[in-house]
Every structure is written in structure tokens, then in C-alpha cells.
């Protein structure tokens, strides 16, 4: 049969579900070992964070799509969590090989890292369901539209109160760690990168300005230009 946007989206959703069938909603045995190898075991914090962000995500999602879709947010979040744990495991394996260390205590106790990684996983799930067309300067549309037109990037950053600059940091490693990502999803994440670099990271309240200021204070250099410039 001829390919239509809806058929293509249904196929992508089905593929994502198949890819995540073997991944659990909880950290795998391999991840549990990485957690135990930490100087400070992050297991409790990680599970609590997922629980807290899950409630927040579902609440904001259901609020955005309306009463007729209550419960849908939780389903999407569950898929996102599976992808989050799966990519985290692949990232740690890759880092272990690259750095020859097994103690990732600092990284695994970094709340910003986890929130960014989970946000990236959810962005992939949302893009798979919602398509990847531009609308009103962000992303939205596709098979999930029009009910989900407000859920495109950077919606997730607002929900998790995450700086675009931090979200940006996980994208490349995420793509490297998840070779089954569809071409469309890779393209979507690449567009999130571009949108961040071109506009979002340079908004007045971005932590980037403070980081640049600190960097300049540490060494000789020019004054950081104000956001308006």
C-alpha cells in the first residue's frame, strides 16, 4: 500500500515498541552493578527522580492534550524510561571501554545528567508519536497532531526546568549509544541541536552567560557580551 504520513508514523511507533520490548522499566542487572560500583550508590536517587519526573510529565502531558487522552502521558513516559535505562547502560559500557574505569560515581550522582538523558529519551518517544514537522518555531505536527501541537521541542525543557545547554550535551552520546534510532529520530535530535545552538541557548535566562563569564574570569579575555547583543 502507498506510504502515508499516518502509516509511516504507525510503523515508526511499532518499531520503537519492538526495539524497547527487551528493555525493562527498572535498571537492568548490568546497570545495578554500575550503581553498586559507585563511591556513593545513586540507585535510590535515580528511582526517586524517575518517579517524581514521571508524575510531573504525565500531569503536564495530560493537561496539554486534554481530558480525552488521560493516561496517555504515563504510557509515553514508560517508553521513555525504558529508552533512558537502555541508553544509560550503553553509554556506561562505552565510557568504561574508553576510560578504563568502572566507578562513575560523579556522573551517576549528577541530577542534570539524568534529567537531560531522560528528557532526550522522551523527546525521541514524542517525536516518534508526534512527527517531526516545524510549527511556530518549534516542533510539532505529524500523526499525533493536532492534539499534541504544543508538545514539540522545547516543551520537555520547560516541563523538567532543564537548560537547553545541558540537554544539548547528551544528544551526540545518545545517538552514538543507540544505533537502532531511526533516521528520522536522528534528524529530529539534530534539529533540536540546531534550534538550541541558534536560539534557545542564547535566551536571556540561559546559564550559558554565567558559564562564559566564569570562564573569562579564570583567564584573560574579552568581556562577555550581554544577551541582547
Amino acid at each position: 500500500p502507498p506510504q502515508t504520513p499516518v502509516r509511516a508514523a504507525m510503523s515508526s511507533i511499532q518499531q520503537l515498541r519492538v526495539d524497547l520490548t527487551s528493555s525493562g522499566d527498572q535498571p537492568s542487572a548490568v546497570l545495578a552493578v554500575y550503581f553498586k560500583n559507585c563511591t556513593l550508590d545513586p540507585t535510590g536517587e535515580i528511582l526517586q527522580r524517575v518517579e517524581r519526573l514521571g508524575q510531573l510529565f504525565s500531569q503536564m502531558f495530560d493537561q496539554a492534550v486534554g481530558l480525552r487522552c488521560v493516561g496517555l502521558g504515563k504510557q509515553r513516559f514508560t517508553l521513555g524510561v525504558r529508552l533512558y535505562y537502555r541508553v544509560m547502560e550503553a553509554m556506561l559500557k562505552s565510557e568504561e571501554k574508553r576510560l578504563s574505569v568502572q566507578n562513575f560515581s560523579k556522573l551517576l550522582n549528577d541530577s542534570t545528567f539524568h534529567t537531560s538523558l531522560l528528557a532526550c529519551a522522551l523527546e525521541v518517544v514524542m517525536a516518534t508519536y508526534g512527527g517531526t514537522s516545524f510549527k511556530n518555531g518549534g516542533y510539532s505536527g505529524g500523526a499525533g497532531a493536532p492534539a499534541e501541537t504544543d508538545l514539540g521541542f522545547p516543551w520537555i525543557l520547560d516541563v523538567f526546568r532543564l537548560a537547553a545547554f545541558d540537554f544539548y550535551k547528551v544528544i551526540e552520546s545518545f545517538i552514538k549509544a543507540e544505533p537502532t534510532l531511526s533516521k528520522d529520530n536522528v534528524k529530529h535530535l539534530e534539529r533540536c541541536e540546531h534550534l538550541t545552538m541558534e536560539t534557545i541557548a542564547w535566551r536571556g535566562d540561559s546559564p550559558l552567560f554565567e558559564l562564559l563569564r566564569l570562564t573569562h574570569e579564570e583567564g584573560p579575555g574579552e568581556q562577555v557580551e550581554p544577551p541582547s547583543t
Partner: peptide
Amino acid sequence: SHDYHFGLEDNEGISELFDCD
């Protein structure tokens, strides 16, 4: 199968990006 441009060098990864090297 995609043309994403990987920019990280061999000595850079998620650990360095989150200042955990």
C-alpha cells in the same frame, strides 16, 4: 544509515561533558 555529524573527539565523551573526567 544517517548523516549526523559526530563532533566529539576520541578523548571526549559524556563524562567530560558533565565534568566528571
